[in-house]
């Protein structure tokens, strides 16, 4: 018997889409700021920088809200990557490399997702710190010294941006190919599950729903 289960509460849905808009704009405007001749997406540097700085505040708020939610509702149990998740990686790799068709039930997110999602939080903090050092070098000279100078901060900011580009691409690809039900649930919040089949929702999550 199939029934609908809440997979993503409203708060997660809102922060997800807010962060998605912010990070996408940050990546695009960031590439323009890095090399305006090569990545010619904007009319002027001023426009690109303005968007970058608005979205900087949005993503900071988005990260803060998401982390607060994760701690306040114990949602971190679903999403936070732990070292014990490492032992599940071989099984996950076997699935992704088509060696087996079985995707074991690890709860709401599989260990790969946990690694990427908690990694984004960590990388965002690095981006915020290096970004602030570059944004207001006069106000935050200490930040620049932590990274060993502004140029190193700039290099870190640029390379971590590439990690975002790659992981967002993987995230998009896997979500679109692993079943549109999951994608839909990020809009509606609900996912259809079969009672007989292993559920993609944790017991914790179910308890919150019911």
């Amino acid at each position: 018997m199939a029934r609908k289960v809440l997979r993503h509460p409203l708060f997660i849905r809102v922060t997800h889409w807010v962060n998605m808009i912010a990070i996408t704009s940050l990546i695009i405007s960031g590439f323009y700021i890095h090399n305006p001749l090569k990545y010619n997406f904007f009319s002027t540097m001023d426009a690109a920088r303005k968007l970058h700085f608005y979205m900087m505040y949005v993503v900071m708020a988005g990260l803060l809200a998401r982390v607060y939610y994760a701690i306040a509702t114990k949602d971190y149990q679903n999403i936070w990557f732990r070292f014990k998740d490492l032992k599940n990686f071989p099984a996950l790799l076997r699935y992704y490399l088509f060696l087996t068709d079985k995707h074991p039930n690890w709860g709401k997110y599989n260990p790969g997702q946990k690694l990427v999602y908690s990694g984004w939080g960590f990388l965002l903090i690095i981006q915020i710190l290096t970004g602030l050092a570059l944004y207001k070098p006069d106000t935050f000279p200490t930040l620049a010294s932590i990274f060993g100078g502004l140029n190193i901060a700039r290099l870190i900011h640029y390379l971590v941006n590439w990690i975002f580009v790659i992981t967002v691409a993987i995230h998009l690809y896997l979500d679109l190919t692993e079943g549109l039900g999951i994608v839909k649930s990020m809009f509606t919040g609900y996912v259809t599950v079969d009672e007989e089949e292993p559920t993609v929702v944790t017991k914790e999550q179910l308890r919150q729903t019911l």
């Binding site: 890095h34 090399n35 060993g148 100078g149 502004l150 140029n151 190193i152 700039r154 290099l155 640029y158 390379l159």
Partner: peptide, 18 residues
Amino acid sequence: EPGFPDKIGPIYEKMPEV
């Protein structure tokens, strides 16, 4: 800047090499 010329160079490139 500290790290001149390695970390701040190359002179005619924006960023140091990885």
